[in-house]
Design a protein around this nucleic acid. Structure first.
Length: 207
DNA sequence: GCTAGGATGCTCT
DNA sequence: GAGCATCCTAGCC
């Protein structure tokens, strides 16, 4: 079990989004430790991607995306739900990876309580849900993933079948295959892709 | 089981 | 003032 170093995040968002599948997101607070395996991500490519918050340039909300890689960008969606991104980009570029779904691993009781008693796969199968389950709120915006509150670990696990398709819940850039997910995982979010659901699938070597 | 629609408040034009 | 990288519930099959 090793934490991902900042160099892991210092590359193009689609590459980082693909390689984050199978990694473990961990949060630790006074309430306890919770963690889950990442089973779904989406890449947002800054200035070249009309669906990205960074597309229209630097604002007070998206300032973290324009900062160094390996930090958390958390924003409020639809005025109700927090959504959690990891800032990933080579130097002088802007990009982020949206974490959409997790397979719960540790602290399931705490997650269930945070989610109002909802059991099983409904704990983390959506961007708003996983933030709620792991206790990630707007105050986590700008958190350093090399700190001791929130980080991502590599436990050597890699999914055997990786799906690549269109992103979910957006109205621009819908034709870009920038959504990565574990095929056949019951923990992937139920949202309907804006474009083709499955563009391609990749077999990973067993690890 | 599936689908449609309302809630909700911040952000940007 | 409109639009949103969503979630939940009621209603229907």
């Amino acid at each position: 079990m090793s934490r991902l170093p900042r160099t892991f995040y210092e590359r193009r968002s689609p590459d980082a989004a693909r390689d984050l599948i199978g990694k473990v997101l961990v949060t630790e607070s006074s309430a306890g430790r919770t963690s889950g395996r990442i089973v779904e991500t989406e890449a947002y490519c800054g200035g070249s991607d009309p669906a990205s918050h960074a597309y229209r340039g630097l604002t007070a909300r998206n300032a973290v995306m324009f900062g160094p890689s390996g930090f958390l960008y958390v924003y409020l969606s639809y005025g109700v739900h927090a959504c959690c991104n990891v800032v990933t980009s080579p130097e002088h570029e802007v990009g982020a990876v949206l974490l959409r779904a997790l397979e719960p691993l540790e602290g399931i009781e705490l997650m269930t309580a945070r989610r109002g008693g909802r059991p099983g796969r409904d704990l983390c199968n959506g961007p708003g849900k996983l933030c709620q389950a792991l206790g990630i709120g707007l105050e986590a915006n700008g958190t350093d993933l090399e700190g001791d509150a929130i980080w991502i670990e590599d436990d050597g696990h890699a999914p055997q079948l990786l799906g690549i398709g269109s992103r979910v819940g957006i109205t621009a850039g819908t034709d870009l295959p920038l959504r990565y997910f574990v095929l056949n995982s019951p923990y992937v979010s139920p949202g309907k892709p804006a474009g083709p659901a499955l563009v391609s699938m990749v077999k990973q070597p067993e690890s």
